[in-house]
Design a binder for these strands. Structure first.
Lengths: 137, 137
DNA sequence: CTTTCTGCAAACGATTTGCAGCAGC
DNA sequence: GCTGCTGCAAATCGTTTGCAGAAAG
């Protein structure tokens, strides 16, 4: 959390538009490929700035690269489907049934542990059709 | 996946015992603190060896440090409760109700995307009582 | 004995940061 | 014009690896 003293520059506009049109979490490499005019260090600084501003969220995958997506305020609540071979991440819709089960699990966890739970992440992990076709690895 | 040509040395025994007695995912720093006689590089090599052997699993948290826990073959299926302030991770039990909702979500995702789903991760994210007491950050 | 581990220090790769000039407001 | 952003290159930090000696079987 930090300053609201932020400027909505060309680079940041481009970053947000890239995330919007992707509709799935992108790695820094993917963002750079989509915005060739912006350098890597600025991209890192901009995701940080936009995370502080509440517009972007960092998501953890199975590989060592961070990925970034629009905050749920902007994109709506959803879960992820992750390929454990290539690391690609897709958004998937959350069913009300699943959400209810998660809310109940959160209630139980708060009661048992003293945590206050205010979010959840659900990742389905598997292999995308592409990687399955290429033979595992 | 790799060799079974592995020796069950003092260091590996200590690593497994540390994970067993913790009952929750530990970072490399935490493992090192619990096994002062083993160096950092050996610990990294040993978690890798034990992951290859199927005894240990790497888990992604909210911070940049990897954490490690016993494979579910040994510890049973469970989910995680993560403190977004200090990064600590606790194990929590999965309810049958939640598991059923997840299985259904996986079925739908496979149908929609062509992925084959073979695992899932559920993380409840919040703030532990300790961090709440200390005032956020 | 042979093969796999271990410790140490150097190497890596992703991410961060200091600095000087440019751009938003 | 003042303040925040950008590019560049150097620094940082978690993690990996090469090598020579120690330990497992």
């Amino acid at each position: 959390m930090a300053q609201v003293e932020q400027r909505y520059t060309r680079a940041r506009r481009a970053l947000v538009e890239t995330l919007v049109s992707a509709g799935r979490p992108l790695s820094i490499a993917e963002i750079l490929a989509a915005t060739p005019a912006i350098t890597q260090s600025s991209t890192y600084r901009n995701v940080t700035a936009l995370i502080d501003a509440g517009a972007v969220r960092r998501v953890a995958g199975t590989d060592n690269h961070s990925r970034f997506e629009l905050a749920e305020d902007l994109s709506g609540h959803h879960h992820h489907l992750i390929c454990q071979t290539c690391g690609h991440v897709l958004d998937i819709a959350a069913s009300p049934w699943l959400e209810r089960a998660l809310a109940e699990a959160a209630r139980v966890a708060e009661e048992d542990t003293g945590f206050s739970v205010d979010d959840h992440r659900v990742d389905l992990v598997g292999t995308c059709s592409q990687c399955r076709r290429d033979g595992h690895r």
